[in-house]
Simulated assay, not measured.
Amino acid sequence: MIFDEYTIKSLVRPVPDFPKAGVTFRDITPLYRSPKAMRMVADSLIQRYVESPVTHIGAIDARGFLLGAVIAYELNKPLILFRKVGKLPGDTLKDTYATEYSKAELEIQSDSFAGGEQVLLLDDLIATGGTFLAAARLVKQLGASVYEAAAIIDLPDLGGSRKMQDADIPTYSLCAFADNE
């Protein structure tokens, strides 16, 4: 199946002033309701990473879990969950980060990596980059490396992909939306 950015973008619904005034939320649920679009997204990412040195898939809470599970299954790689604080049992490590409208914490189980792994981080979108940067710090703290941070959508006007690149985290997205789109 050929990737069609227009199809993907047409299925991402802008929701103005959600979750607060001034924020335009990019809702990907219409994309997940389209088997064709979901297959395009998954197949594009699978093709990108099938011959890469990625050893683990790191899925970010919560929408990243949807994509991460599919990619981990198809690439036959372990799936590592990055969760909001208090959702994982056992020993965990956590990191605090800022979003475009709040502060939050992300955690990972402390036995997720032995050291030396190459981790593909996945989420639905790159906004301010805070969540991806927190996940990357946790990966590094456990002795692994981020191979790439990938998302369906990049919102470059919020500066996240630039911050990630400045932190030497390679980024990849299937499409991007400017503020005026």
Rank of each mutant, 00 (worst) to 15 (best):
D4Y: 06
Y6A: 15
K9S: 11
S10E: 13
V12A: 09
V12R: 08
R13C: 08
V15D: 07
D17C: 07
G22Y: 12
V23K: 03
F25P: 12
F25N: 09
R26T: 10
D27K: 06
D27I: 09
D27F: 09
I28L: 13
T29M: 15
P30D: 08
R33V: 00
K36T: 12
M38Q: 10
M38T: 12
R39S: 13
M40G: 00
V41E: 04
A42W: 02
D43V: 04
D43R: 06
S44K: 14
L45P: 09
Q47L: 11
V50L: 12
E51P: 00
S52Q: 09
V54D: 07
V54P: 11
I57W: 06
I57Q: 07
G58K: 01
A62I: 09
L66I: 15
L67N: 08
A72V: 04
L75W: 04
L75Q: 05
L75E: 03
K77P: 04
I80A: 01
I80Q: 01
I80C: 02
F82I: 02
K84W: 12
G86M: 08
K87P: 04
L88P: 07
L88S: 05
A98M: 05
T99A: 02
E100L: 02
S102M: 01
E105T: 14
E105F: 01
L106K: 07
L106S: 06
E107A: 02
S110I: 00
D111H: 13
S112T: 00
G115W: 07
G116F: 07
L120W: 13
L121D: 02
D124C: 06
T128F: 11
T128L: 10
G129I: 08
G129Q: 11
A135C: 13
R137Q: 12
L138D: 00
L138F: 01
L138R: 01
V139N: 00
V139W: 00
K140S: 12
K140N: 11
L142T: 00
A144H: 06
A144R: 04
S145F: 13
S145M: 09
S145H: 15
V146L: 10
E148L: 02
A150Q: 04
I152K: 03
P156Q: 11
D157V: 05
L158S: 09
L158C: 09
G159T: 07
G160H: 05
G160N: 05
S161Y: 08
R162Q: 14
K163T: 02
K163Q: 14
M164I: 05
M164E: 05
Q165N: 15
I169N: 09
T171C: 14
T171G: 06
S173P: 09
L174S: 09
A176K: 14
A178V: 02
D179K: 15
